[in-house]
Design a protein around this nucleic acid. Structure first.
Lengths: 233, 233
DNA sequence: TCGAAAAGATGACAATTATCATATATATAT
DNA sequence: ATATATATATGATAATTGTCATCTTTTCGA
């Protein structure tokens, strides 16, 4: 009996958004045959900092935070990865243990792809290698931007940016609340501040009518006010 | 008349340290024939943020700072590149204008390599592509580390780290002063703080016997004290 | 559905860092 | 060699951010 259509990488829509589209039919078939689909519950981890990865994870659904523990015991979230993104390639390519932990911030469905097929294709298909390279170049640019934000913007500005980022990347529901509801602690860890500071600033934004909250849900009310704050007014 | 031996990429020692070593003889010959060697004086720029790069720069001698201007007018130094490093590949590979400026912090000698030969080799030689990929994976990891440092360490800790970094990467002269003498402003821009704050902390370190200064030159005196401070004592 | 545990909120205070003013030293060009 | 610009240094003060304590609300498992 053949596997269902949608569970084959060849037919996976998610692939449209990542570098796996640069694989040939045959290569993709190999990937599909070796991949394992798993469900990961919110709060569970895909891997921990320091793990040696035997493959990469392709996100079919849900969102994962990629974070690194600092010496003082706080987690710094370096990136959020969602549908269509591939996690773990840096480690697999550099043949090093991961520098980041990956934890689901919403229920996820991911495909684990053993590294053999990735590495093999990298060495055989220059097209694929260049595509992965482009992707990593993009990640690097984003990381540079984060560095500049971290050091040159205030916590308030970074939190305001985070909300606009969440809105434009994950959208909002019918009631105008962000689809991706991060905890206050996660928000603090994204912008690199203390949880209490993040909470205080969120309260302030709410008072000023920039955002609204309902439990842990947060909605952007006045995008322009947030934008002005980011630009320094 | 043939060109002198040492000016040929094939014989360039610098290449030993970067991904150009993954090129074949023929590819390297092509690079060598198309490259242009230039001298860049301290303070001059190789390129500015937003420029479209037609190639990459291979550093033969000297050091360049790679920085990004923030909205508030300050420069954030994201990376220092020295002998053997290649600058500009991110932009060339992603086919985007650069996100960073490159300015010489000491007199430099660089080779400009037009992008055609790089791009051509990327598409033909998977070995080369993978090597470049590995290199970029490494840069990405370093960028992640910088993000965590920026958000989780104090300015003092970051300055202490900077000195240890400069010592281990560029060494010191007979008198124990760092070979790479960055201005106070550059140091501030590396760690992401105000110039006055950096100066104040440098004075404090000097008083405590952790470092010594002589004009703009700085020397590490007590590595352990610096290390302790970094680790939070 | 009840109760414990976790998350969110807020006050009080301390520590860190930025800003502005100004002084001194150093480098650079004529 | 001297004037001028630039870099370094330091004080005073304000603004930002972190820490600790405490309280309330929400979440979630037994």
């Amino acid at each position: 009996m053949e596997e269902g259509e949608e569970s084959r990488c060849e037919n996976c829509i998610v692939r449209q958004f990542n570098y796996l589209r640069a694989m040939s039919k045959a290569e993709l078939k190999k990937v599909s045959d070796s991949k394992v689909t798993k469900k990961v519950k919110k709060g569970e981890s895909l891997f921990e900092e320091g793990d040696k990865l035997d493959g990469v994870f392709c996100v079919r659904d849900g969102v994962s935070k990629l974070s690194k523990l600092s010496a003082n015991g706080k987690d710094q979230i370096v990136k959020l990865a969602s549908k269509g993104e591939v996690i773990g390639q840096r480690s697999v390519i550099a043949e090093e243990s991961t520098n980041l932990s990956a934890v689901a911030v919403s229920d996820m469905e991911v495909c684990f792809i053993p590294k053999d097929s990735i590495v093999h294709t990298l060495n055989q298909n220059p097209n694929f290698a260049v595509e992965v390279l482009r992707h990593m170049a993009h990640d690097l640019k984003e990381a540079d931007d984060v560095i500049v934000n971290m050091s040159q913007k205030t916590v308030k500005q970074r939190i305001a940016e985070a909300f606009l980022y969440l809105k434009s990347n994950y959208g909002e529901d019918e009631k105008g609340f962000l689809n991706l509801a991060l905890s206050r602690e996660d928000i603090a860890n994204v912008v690199g501040t203390a949880t209490e500071s993040a909470i205080r600033i969120i309260s302030e934004f709410k008072k000023k009518g920039m955002i609204k909250t309902s439990g842990k849900k947060i909605g952007v009310v006045d995008e322009k006010l947030l934008q002005d704050l980011i630009e320094g007014f």
